[in-house]
């Protein structure tokens, strides 16, 4: 409770019960305009909140913020690399790339703070302020955790939440003309998918941390087909029903899809 009072930040995404959360602020993510100096990766200017146009700066990655709904926003991340100089950052800068980073690498892209400290801290202080807030600088996504008694554990939970949020919020552009589902997406599909080879191994479920990567790729596709489940199903060799069931198997995935559908005036999946 204390952290809410002290932080007073309406931007903070609170995901105490991430998976089942239905709080109205759930999808309200801030897009911070970062000054390039505060930004870990030099390549991420983020257009102002109202901007819906894509602007190209002297870098290879840009974000477009789509105002899909009053309080709903997504972050677009696309890569058009042309110059050699971009190569290093590309790997880390890709939306999917964030999720492929190790915990340490991802943490390095974040600014972590605890509660605003007053006074000298350290040995002077006994306050059990163990809440942790992670701000992912390239995307501005914030995750926090405060439910545990140790800062270390809160940091780990915040990082897990950050990964889930990245999967849900950072969209990669998909070229539908030449689309073939990436391996991590194939792995979360049910075995009956006609394009899923047996080399994919058993289906990865929502509890597996690897599910996030597949979920992100699935959302990328569903966004590319503007929320049409039947369209997306065709690309995945599934029936519409089978894809719906997959989407409904994970609450956060379902909510993200339904939010998109709502913005397009489509009925929610149930």
């Amino acid at each position: 409770m204390a952290h809410q009072i002290l932080w007073k930040s309406s931007f903070v995404v609170r995901l105490g019960r991430f998976i089942s959360s239905s709080s109205p602020s759930f999808f309200h993510l801030p897009l911070y305009s970062l000054s390039s100096s505060s930004c870990f990766l030099k390549v991420h200017p983020i257009p102002t909140l109202s901007s819906t146009t894509t602007r190209r700066r002297n870098n290879c990655i840009w974000f477009q913020q789509q105002q899909l709904h009053d309080r709903h926003s997504f972050l677009w991340c696309s890569k058009y690399s042309t110059t050699r100089a971009c190569v290093d950052t590309e790997i880390e800068g890709l939306g999917k790339g964030y999720l492929e980073l190790t915990d340490e690498e991802l943490t390095r892209q974040c600014k972590m703070d605890t509660l605003k400290s007053s006074g000298p801290g350290g040995q002077h202080r006994n306050k059990r302020e163990s809440a942790v807030r992670l701000k992912h600088l390239p995307t501005g996504i914030i995750a926090q955790a405060s439910e545990d008694r140790s800062q270390h554990r809160n940091r780990a939970s915040a990082l897990t939440r950050l990964r889930a949020l990245i999967a849900l919020k950072v969209r990669n552009t998909v070229d539908l003309e030449a689309y073939s589902p990436p391996q991590e997406l194939l792995q979360i599909l049910p075995a009956k998918s006609s394009i899923r080879g047996s080399d994919c191994g058993p289906q990865i479920g929502p509890k597996n941390p690897k599910f996030l990567l597949g979920m992100q790729a699935l959302l990328d596709l569903i966004f590319a087909v503007e929320g049409s489940i039947s369209e997306a199903a065709k690309f995945l060799g599934l029936t519409t029903g089978a894809l719906s069931r997959l989407i409904l198997s994970d609450d956060s995935l379902r909510m993200a899809v339904n939010e998109l559908r709502a913005s397009k005036g489509m009925k929610p999946l149930k």
Partner: peptide
């Protein structure tokens, strides 16, 4: 201190026993 009351402190992934006479480890 609360940590002396319950006799422990959660520190990193550890739960350490503490009592009067021993400094309570700090998150820093």
């Amino acid at each position: 201190p609360f940590q002396y009351v319950v006799g422990c402190e959660h520190w990193r992934d550890l739960v350490l026993s503490v009592q009067e006479g021993v400094l309570i480890p700090r998150p820093e």
